[in-house]
Structure formats: structure tokens, C-alpha cells
Simulated scan of single mutants.
Amino acid sequence: MIVGSYAAIGDSFSEGMGDELPDGTPRGWADLVALGLAAAHAAAQADGATGGAAATPFGYANLAIRGRLLGPILSEQLPPAIALRPALLTINGGGNDIMRPRVSVASTADRLVAAAGEATAADIRVAIVSGADPTRHLPLGPLIRARGDELAEAVRDRLAGTGIAYIDNWGDSVLTDLRFWSVDRLHLNALGHARVAGTVLAGLGVEIPAAAHAPSEAGAPDIARPRTAEYWRQYVLPWIGRRLTGRSSGDGRTPKRPTLLPVELPASI
């Protein structure tokens, strides 16, 4: 698939938490997908596959914000994403919803698919991208896993025959291994995001470029992980506290890339 622009909306998964650059900015799978799409776009222009049209830079926007429930994603991020008129839009959401005490999985699936339909009606190609499954390493993991399984099945069933792509990272059993997760066990690390990027590009039918910009499994460093009591103190209890007080890790944050900006390709691609 050759497209000239791409936008992503969602929560921390699409923002790229767990895969931070040296300056602390989250990178993540969507940024890596943008690199792959930009490389394919540049190659097509070099080969003349654009029908003689003038060379144009590939544009990428990422409106995702950590901690967002599906409702705010669709009300705050979807309209401006559609207004950008990207050739491709990825939608991710619902992961924070299924971690709440009460959630309607059917309603969550309905809203995801309706949002994809809204963007499709605006002549934008859409892919719904599910988050990876962290539940093997989390408290209350079995409950959240059951909800995640139900959501994945519901979305898949609703998308049947629509032509809208569904990229299933939740069902990737390899990604459940702890080596793909950051120290908080809730967000993928650089290795996990790189695997998701490869899955998304493959699902879109794009040849995966040389991964000089992404870590390889062979070279991934071991992560120093806290003991159980320290882990609960540093990560679980603050997360519970935010839930009880109605706060979010994304409060006050703005999108890291709210407009379609050119993607700079590494020299090795």
C-alpha cells in the first residue's frame, strides 16, 4: 500500500509510551509505521509509480494521548484527525475502558467500528489497531484478559465485510512475554513497539524497511525490574489512586504531533 499521509489516534499505546527517545519524547509503533510508509512512498516516487506527479513529502500526525478512554479519543481526537484528511488513519482505543470496574464491551466495539465508518465515509483508509495483551504480568490479569478477548472478537465480527482493516496485536501470543514490556508492565518497551510496527505494516501490505531505526530482539538490553513490593508502590498504587480520584496520566497533555508534518527518513532506509 502506498499512501502520502498517515494519522494515528488513541491512548498511550499509540502515543508510544514505553519507547522513549533520549529527550523523553515517546516514539512507539505508530512513529515506526510512519517511517515504513514514508519509505514506501519515497520509493514509489523514485520509481515513477506516482504517475508523474510532483514529488511530495510524506506527512504524519499523531494525536494520541496517554490515559484516554475511548469516549474522549473519539470526541477529542477523531474530528481533528478527519479534518487533516490523511490517506490512512489508525484508530486504537478501549484498552483503558476494559480496565475500569464496569464496561460494556459491546458498546465499546460498536463505537470503535462506528468511528472507523465515519472516517471511511470521509474517503480515508482506516485500520483499527488493537493493543497488545499485558495481562499475564498484571494484577487482575485474568479478568482484563477475558474482556480483551471479548472486545477483539466483537470488533472483528463487526468489521466483517466492511473492508476496514483490523490489526490484531491482542492475539499475538509472542507479545505476552515480559521481554517486550517496559518496567511498568503495562506499556510495551522499544522491542515490543518494534514488533507491533512490523505487524501493522504487514497488515497494510507494506514491505518492512531495514530496521536501523528500531531495536532488534538480539540486541535488546535486559530491563532492571523492581521487586513485587516496590513495583506495587511505584506503579500499581499510583494507578489505583488515579482511578479512585478520576485523574489520568494524560491530564493536561496535548498531542505530540497534532498536524501532518514531513517524516525524515534515516539514511539507511
Rank of each mutant, 00 (worst) to 15 (best):
T135E: 07
A53L: 15
R66M: 08
Q77A: 11
A152L: 12
A38E: 04
A109F: 04
A81D: 09
G141K: 05
V103E: 09
I144G: 00
R68D: 13
I91S: 10
R147T: 10
L69C: 03
A55N: 08
D149W: 03
G94H: 04
R136N: 05
R111W: 00
L143D: 09
V126D: 09
R136G: 14
T25F: 08
G94T: 08
A119Y: 01
T108Y: 01
V105Y: 03
T135C: 14
V155W: 02
L88S: 08
A30P: 02
Q45F: 06
I82E: 09
A61S: 06
A122P: 01
V126N: 07
A122Y: 01
A116T: 00
P26I: 12
G67P: 02
Q45A: 12
L151R: 05
A121H: 04
G28V: 07
L143Y: 04
D157R: 14
R111E: 13
G117P: 00
E150M: 13
A109V: 04
D123Q: 09
A46C: 07
A53R: 15
S107F: 01
S130V: 06
D133G: 04
P139W: 10
M99V: 11
I82R: 11
A114C: 00
I82N: 06
P72V: 13
L78V: 12
D97P: 03
G93I: 09
L74K: 07
A109S: 05
A127E: 07
I124G: 09
A122L: 02
R102H: 12
R85T: 14
E150C: 10
G131V: 08
G48A: 14
L88T: 08
P80F: 07
G24I: 10
G59D: 08
D149T: 14
F58C: 09
G67K: 02
V33N: 02
G94C: 07
L78E: 11
E118V: 05
R100G: 12
D110G: 01
D157V: 12
A49W: 06
S107V: 13
G48H: 10
P26Q: 12
A39R: 03
S75C: 06
H137T: 10
A119D: 02
A122F: 01
A119Q: 02
L74C: 11
L89S: 11
I73W: 03
D97V: 06
R136E: 14
R111F: 00
P101C: 12
I73D: 05
D157G: 10
R102N: 08
N62P: 01
L88R: 10
A106M: 05
I73V: 15
A64N: 02
R100M: 15
F58H: 05
S75V: 14
L35V: 15
R68G: 01
G52F: 12
A83E: 15
A132N: 05
D47I: 00
T25P: 04
A132R: 03
G28H: 04
L35K: 01
L63T: 03
I82V: 15
A39I: 02
L78I: 11
S130I: 06
V33C: 09
E153T: 14
G95H: 07
T56R: 15
G67C: 07
T50F: 08
G93P: 03
A49H: 13
I128V: 15
